[in-house]
Every structure is written in C-alpha cells, then in structure tokens.
C-alpha cells in the first residue's frame, strides 16, 4: 500500500513536470552541438546525432532541456534519503530515436554494464546530474550517475539493478 502511494506520488510528480515542460519533449529536431564540456556521449543505433562520428553528445544545458525529473530515494551507497535530479533514460532514448535492446554503459573508471532498454520506462531510472541540488563531482560519483527509484519500487532493490546503477557515467552505446 505504502509502495503504491509512493508510486502514485512519483507519477503525479512526473505528470506535473511533464505538463510544465510538455512542449520540449515533443519538440523534435536536429540535435544542436554542445556549447560546454561534454558530459555524455551516446552512440550506436540512434537517429539523432550531432557529431561527425555519428554520436550524440550532451553538455549540462542539453541535459537540462530533456525535462529532468526528481527522484527522492535512499541508496545503499549513501546515508539517508537523497534528492537526485536527472533525465529519465526513456526520455533520452525517445529524443534520440534510439532503436535497440541493450545499452552498454561505460564509466570513467572503466566500469561497464549492460542495461536492457526495457528498463527505460516512465518512473524508472534516470541519469542523475544533481544530488541535493548540487552538481556531482567525480570524487562524489559524478558527474552522471544512473539512479533507479529504489525506495518506490522494491524490485529495484536487487544486486542486478545495483550493478546497473553505474556512476561516473561517460558514454552509452545503443546495441541492437
């Protein structure tokens, strides 16, 4: 019951966010080149790109434009409930017209993990770029950290999902 309420709460929050920025989600178009330091590189089976090499690269401002949502959850790596803000994986994939089944995520520390595209659902994982309202440094598992709403969905409290919660994320390859 409690979980259901939490989930409903998350959906309501999401709804409010979507309503406020609704236009941006559907605003398809050519992906503009980044103006600032590149935080994330997406390659592979995607329709939208902005580099010669056929990748989609994002700076902080571009991520901000992808209707970030907030997940409040505790994690096994932090103390207490944390407030993460970031782009939903599903939003990112939709924006890029990604056609694949597997996401190969790579971290700055050479950690790599495969995330099924089926994980990318509304109310599912986000690519967090803020924690407690502050950008995250590399020393603090930043700048990007894949976060699932562990508290809201008990199924996310599993070792498999923890392994997919990649921090210091730098690139995603969309595999068919």
């Amino acid at each position: 019951m409690k979980t259901l309420l939490k989930r409903l709460g998350a959906v309501a929050l999401l709804g409010a966010v979507l309503a406020a920025h609704g236009s941006a989600v559907t605003a398809a178009g050519v992906l503009a080149p980044p103006q600032d330091e590149v935080l994330l590189t997406v390659s592979g089976a995607i329709a939208e790109t902005n580099t010669e090499a056929g990748e989609a690269v994002f700076d902080r401002a571009m991520l901000e434009a992808l209707d970030p949502v907030i997940i409040e959850t505790s994690t096994i790596w932090t103390d207490g409930v944390q407030r993460f803000r970031g782009v939903q994986l599903v939003t990112l994939l939709d924006r890029l017209g990604a056609e694949g089944t597997i996401l190969r995520a790579l971290a700055l520390n050479d950690y790599a993990i495969e995330i099924p595209v089926s994980d990318a659902v509304e109310g599912g994982p986000i690519i967090a770029f803020e924690r407690g309202g502050e950008p995250m440094s590399v020393r603090d598992k930043g700048p990007l950290w894949v976060i699932y709403p562990y508290d809201a969905v008990p199924e996310y409290k599993s070792e498999r999902i923890y392994a997919r919660s990649i921090w210091q994320l730098v690139s995603i390859e969309v595999l068919p």
């Binding site: 790596w77 599993s158 392994a163």
Partner: peptide, 13 residues
Amino acid sequence: TSQSDNTQWTISQ
C-alpha cells in the same frame, strides 16, 4: 531485497 551490490568487485577495483 539486497542490501549490497557486488562488494567483491569494488574491493578488487
């Protein structure tokens, strides 16, 4: 529900 991720990996890393 699991309370830990792959600790062995973190240790080796």
